[in-house]
Nucleic acid binder design. Sequence first.
DNA 1: CTTTTGTTATATATATGCTATAACAAGAAA
DNA 2: TTTCTTGTTATAGCATATATATAACAAAAG
Lengths: 124, 124
Amino acid sequence: MIVVTVDFNSDEALYMQLCNQIILGIATSQIQEGDSLPSVRQMADDVGINMHTVNKAYTILKQEGYIKLDRRHGAIIAVDSDKLEALERLEKQLRVVIAQAMCKCITKDEIHTMVDNIIDDYIK
Amino acid sequence: MIVVTVDFNSDEALYMQLCNQIILGIATSQIQEGDSLPSVRQMADDVGINMHTVNKAYTILKQEGYIKLDRRHGAIIAVDSDKLEALERLEKQLRVVIAQAMCKCITKDEIHTMVDNIIDDYIK
DNA sequence: CTTTTGTTATATATATGCTATAACAAGAAA
DNA sequence: TTTCTTGTTATAGCATATATATAACAAAAG
């Protein structure tokens, strides 16, 4: 069972925090293909936020291909690997991040090392 | 002279588009240390947006250590390489991006290759 | 039949983004 | 000195985004 917590003082929107934590949960295998997430009402109750905020997060996760929503089985992890779209989104985000890094004199090697460390951390 | 354009239909805030494009300009050496940016009023006029939106972008760039604002010389590119803070910010952003990539079955090698291609593109 | 599910519809309050107009002190240029 | 431009601050208005509250619906499960 995945544990989701939110930071009400963060500048990041609550529904975005939910999305990112669930995606992180999938990447780290805390939750796997076929597992089901708590219902929108249950998750809202657990986290201490409104049902609609959870529903917004689930709807986005569905649109971006991380879960499937089914009236019978609730929200189920189902990652459709639309790799082309995922690669495009990845490049767009990396371009911003890498530009910032280069301005701050962070080297190519340092970036590669950080990528490796994060992946190892997730896989472990 | 750097040319900045904004997409009014983008879901990204105008001041964020400004920030990112200027950071991109620094990373690609379109503008260099010591160069000056157009005044907030001039930039606003060039791009076709309000002065305060530009001012917000400049203020953020100043806070994050990309430019210095001086009443005498306007906005001047001056990257203070607070590498520790930059590395922390980089890791935070990479963690989100890499989690998404791993969910979509994008491999470590694919990420490394993409990083290299982007850096080569910026340096060239 | 009752409960739970996702889903949709309103309504409200607050925050954010963007614009408009105005004013100020400090420095540059005449 | 006078004029102009600079960054900066203040205020106001408008649109959108975020989050909440309450309510209702059909579909499926118990």
